[in-house]
Structure formats: C-alpha cells, structure tokens
Design a binder for these strands. Sequence first.
DNA 1: GGAAAATGTACATATACGTGAATTTATCTG
DNA 2: CAGATAAATTCACGTATATGTACATTTTCC
Lengths: 246, 246
Amino acid sequence: MIVRQAANVLEIMEFFAQTRKPATLAEIADHFGWPRSSTFNLLATLSEKGYLYEPRPRAGFYPTPRWLAMARLISEVEPLPPWTHTLIADLSAETGETASIVAPAGVMAVFIDVVESRAPIRYFATIGHRVPIHATASGRALLLQYSPEERDSVYRKIEFKQYGPSTPISIEAVETELRNSMARGYCQSFADYSRDLAGAAIPLPIGDRRLSVVVAGPEFRIGPKVPEVAALIARTVDRLRPKTTA
Amino acid sequence: MIVRQAANVLEIMEFFAQTRKPATLAEIADHFGWPRSSTFNLLATLSEKGYLYEPRPRAGFYPTPRWLAMARLISEVEPLPPWTHTLIADLSAETGETASIVAPAGVMAVFIDVVESRAPIRYFATIGHRVPIHATASGRALLLQYSPEERDSVYRKIEFKQYGPSTPISIEAVETELRNSMARGYCQSFADYSRDLAGAAIPLPIGDRRLSVVVAGPEFRIGPKVPEVAALIARTVDRLRPKTTA
DNA sequence: GGAAAATGTACATATACGTGAATTTATCTG
DNA sequence: CAGATAAATTCACGTATATGTACATTTTCC
C-alpha cells in the first residue's frame, strides 16, 4: 500500500526543487489538482514542523534550509569517496552518455550518483531513480557481488515481467546472464528493461558496500560500442581507485 | 488539522539525521511506537519514490542521496549571502551564546541559520525552529520592518497567550514594545516566550527580504549584558555587510 | 541441525482523515 | 472607497486508509 500523504510530501518538495521559487497555496493546489483544503492541511503540517516558511508576506511558501541541514547530516555518513564522482564525470565526458553509481535496494537498484549526458537524446536518470536489479546491467553488476544464497533470497521476491524482448523472465535466465557477464568481464543490457536503452556496467565494491558503475544511453548510439565502453569503465576505475583500498 | 503521515515522513528523516545509520523496519516501528504494518507501508512508499534504500542486505534502510540533491536544488535559490553566516559565527564566538538569522512565517518566526553556543547550558535552537513573532526579540525585529497595515494583518491571526510573566498579551502591548525597541535601537526579550531565556535582536533587511539577527542565551548569563550584546550585533553587522547593498 | 524468536508481509475492518461546501479574509478594479 | 472577485480557512461527513491479527520468512541460539 502506498501512503498517499507521505508521497505528497515528496511531491511538494520535488515541485519546489523544480520551480525554485515560492508558491502560494492556490498554485500548489492547482498544480497537483489537489483540493484547496487538503493542500492547506499539508502546508500547515509542513510549516508547523519548520520545513516551510513564507519568505515575504503574501508571496507564498518555500522550504526552509532545514531540509538542507537534515540532508547534510544524513549524507555525511559514509559518503561516497570523491573519486567515484570523478569516475562518472570522466566516463560521461568521454562517452557523451549518462554515467551513474548504483546501489542495491531489495529487488531494485537505486542510482545514488549520476552525471547526465549533455546530448539532446539521452538517458534521463536522477539520483534516487530505481530499476529492477535483475533486468539491468547495473543491477546485475550488483548481483554478481552476492553469494548464491543471497541471490536466491532476492530472486524469490522478484516478480518477473517481460519489460522488453530480451528481459530475463526466470531465475535460470538471470543466472545464465550472470555467468555470461562473468565470462565477458562486464554486464550489459540491451533494452532488457527500458525501451531503446543499452548500457554497460561493472561491479564496484567499496569497503563492504556493494555498488556498481554503469554507462547507459540510447541503443542506436551506445549499442555497438558497449564492449569499448565497458573497457573504458574498467580502465577508468583502475586509474582513479586508490591503490590501498581493495 | 495535522496530516499524520506527512509528519511521519519528517519524523523518520529526523530519526535518520540523529542516528546516522541504517535502521530496520522493526527498529523504526519500535522507536516511534508505530505498528509494524503501518511502518511497512511508510517505508515502502519512501523506498518506491527513491528516497530510501538498503545499503547492504538485511542491514535496514537508509535515505538515498536524493534528499541531499533535492535540498541543494531548493536551497541554492536566494541563498543567504555568506557574510550572514560569518556574522552569527562571529557573534556566537564573541558572546559565547547562540546566534541566529530569523525569517517570518505568518505569526511565527523561523530560524533559517543558527550557530550554537558551546556552553553546557545554552539556548538550544536548530534551523527550522519556530517561535511566536510577537513574543520574541527576533520576531519583533521582523515586525519592525512591516508596514502598520501588514502588522495589523498579522496581529489579527495571533492567539495571545501568556507564555511568561512579561509576554505581551495584546496588540497594544506589542505595539508599545515595538515603539520602545525603536527608541532603544534594538529588540530584547526576557523570558517573553521561553522560560529563563533572554535575547537581543536587530532587523536585518537583505534585498527585499526581511530578516533579523538574534543572540540569545540563559537569562542569568546574558540578561545584564543585553545592551552590550545589542551594540556588538550592530557593530558586527556594520563591519560585515557589504557597503554596496543597502 | 532443529526449534524458537524475531522480522517482514498480507488482508479485512473500524476509524481517522481528506474532501466539498460554506464562511471568512484579502485583493483587485472602476 | 465600495463592490466584486479571488484566496484562505473552517467544519461535518463519508470514504480511503492505518491498524490488529494472522501468516510467512529469516535469523538466532542451543
């Protein structure tokens, strides 16, 4: 079950992150198609908790810096080492595609850092973006770091859906693809999950954290170059990863 | 009406900001005394939206960097000029008390930047902290920047409560105190709102934004020094505020 | 290795909560 | 400055939703 008002809080914040300016109750209500009264209650709750204020009289609400203060506290724990951002920045620059660091979240894989391609046609992903762990290059690069038992436990929770023609729709299909990836030296996906999307990924264990790095873009552009891109990822990781850390 | 599940989202995030480590469903449920099933729904919602993930298998949930990315986007609009943070940092260092930048939010005043005292007994305030605009030094320093009509409009919404012995409990009392503050050159409060708390504040208009700066601490310590502290605030603002900006 | 304890998930039901209509307050316009 | 219009706020009701209970799964401990 999805908790509606919890989701609404996130939507409001995303709204402010997009518009980047104060908004009145009416504007917010109209934007989402919410009743004024419900919007009123939500805004009152967020204000009362100190997360919204009114920068100038009658100009509407805007989030307080409290969000930032809280997010900083939360994210300064185990931050990603700085070189991982350099990694995806370099990869994106050299390939012209979108590069990301990915972490596991149950049966999904979450993008925890992203550098987007600047190409007009590109893979649009943001931090927090989620994809099925078994049907994506980045996800499978995570699964490669699991023990067989751990993989089993994940498999049992997966609902296998035919997202695209090549989506693995059984445990055996996933395991086969993992074996192929091992042999190949990297993970790949050709529209396994998203139409027209291809990508290459490799595992990126950091400390005891299981991450992966992926470069993805439109199939027509990146498809033929997947092996080179994979080699580039590996080389770039070698170059940037501090030697002392395993 | 307070929207429970909206508030719960904030509570969860604050919880993570405090503990700074992943937490399992059970831990979160127990901590808040929420039913497991409800907690499950909330966590599922936050996860589905890409705001929580599971850094390592079976180790529980933790917020994704998406919070940080969103908060950054939101807060990089009209950020406070850097010298305002220097201002409260200097004030806190020199006085040993807590110094803050405050903004209006209806009948309340919100702390939008805070440098805390390091004294064991101190005014504990965080960004997002809210106090009544009419019953605090910082709030009245905001009201001084309003037109009489705007003040009236605020007054009509205030519920006058006797927070302490000196709380102004009528519009006239507030207006009188504002006139005194004008004459005095700064705003002050002696336990008008919080027991044992005294403070000095002055208006701090920046561009078209109405802010104030306040230094506050325990009455026994800061009380006798309020005039000096007020003078220090004024001097420090003069020193730090760029001359070009009015 | 097997039983017990803890954790995670599903579902029906009663109730807290979101909503539409009404009221009040603010803003615009001639 | 009034009258009109729009926005903000309140409130009582009916329904969407949080919860208690039951079941499944995983982990711990002996």
